[in-house]
Computed example of a mutant assay.
Amino acid sequence: MGGIYKMRIIVEKDYQAMSKKAALMVASQITLRPNSNLGLATGGTPLAMYDKLIEMYKKDEIDFSEVQSFNLDEYCGLKDDHPNSYHYYMYNNFFNEINIKKENVHIPNGRAEDFEQECRNYERSIKKVRGIDLQILGIGSNGHIGFNEPAESLNVATEVVNLTDETIEANSRYFDSIDEVPKKAISMGMATILKADRIILLASGENKAEAIQKTVSGKISTEIPASLLQTHPEITILLDQEAASLISQDELSADCHFEICD
């Protein structure tokens, strides 16, 4: 690449190619460090990445038996077996198909009796295993990561957060009605996310293009939480062509590598 870059922006031709690249990067991490601690995301964007990791596992190309996982967030109030809980999402779309040990899976408890204690315990569980080696992120159309929503100030550590109307509306497609969408969630804070050794941010589709442009524009603002990722020493942003459509290479800093794949 001709230098050391803090941020790599890789543009793949479409969603499937982007997802394959992401899966290969996760597999490489686990191959090099079988007991890796992975930070995992939910939502529509990572689904194909998880599918491709499952395919690799079934071909004996990857082994999750020593991996520990830590999810970014969970809705408050939903039972683990609720079809829209992130517990259900992770087991239904990934964990049930691989050989990760149940005791190595960490997801915030959205039904905790004491949410403040649950947040403290979650932070301790991450610190206990020396932190996250590779964090996978998605991004909201308003620039949120995890459930760190645009605001004048952002949470440092894992906390209970109020979801914005925009996020509630965006997530309502997964529920029978918008009234069923939880209004609060437990989410890793920005400092927790930024402490990961490596970060991969995934974004697909035209509706994410503006958020991506603001994330990499060279300006940092809590109104675009993802823009804080520019301060991380090793981040890769994987995009399809639609999500990358508003990026101006003139705005990118000198320590950013921009790559368009065939």
Rank of each mutant, 00 (worst) to 15 (best):
L238I: 10
L252E: 08
S227N: 09
V181Y: 04
L40D: 06
S125D: 11
I136M: 14
D197Y: 11
G189M: 11
G131F: 07
G140M: 10
G138D: 01
D240W: 01
L228Q: 07
A191Y: 13
Q241M: 15
N207E: 10
F175M: 13
D179F: 08
T45F: 01
G110T: 01
E206N: 09
F64H: 07
T31W: 11
I62G: 03
D73N: 14
E55G: 00
I260H: 15
K214Q: 15
A48L: 12
L239Q: 06
S125R: 14
T167S: 11
T167H: 10
F147Q: 01
R198Q: 11
V160P: 07
V105G: 01
N155W: 09
E234D: 13
E234Q: 14
Q68R: 10
P182I: 03
K184S: 05
N207W: 00
E180C: 06
D179A: 12
V181I: 12
Q117M: 02
R198E: 12
L137V: 10
H106S: 02
H87T: 13
L40T: 15
N84I: 03
I260Q: 15
T215H: 10
P34H: 04
Y75T: 02
N99A: 08
I186H: 10
E259I: 13
L38E: 02
Q68W: 05
M90E: 02
I247R: 07
C261Q: 15
K59V: 00
K219F: 09
V216G: 04
T158L: 03
P83Y: 05
G218T: 05
D14L: 11
N121T: 06
E210D: 15
S28F: 14
G2D: 13
R130T: 10
I62L: 10
T215Q: 03
D114S: 13
S177M: 09
G140P: 02
V216A: 03
T164Y: 03
V129Y: 08
S85K: 03
T42C: 07
L163Y: 00
F70D: 00
M188N: 05
H106M: 06
F94V: 05
L229F: 08
E74G: 02
E66F: 10
K183V: 03
I186T: 10
G143Y: 02
E159H: 15
E251I: 11
L202P: 03
S36N: 04
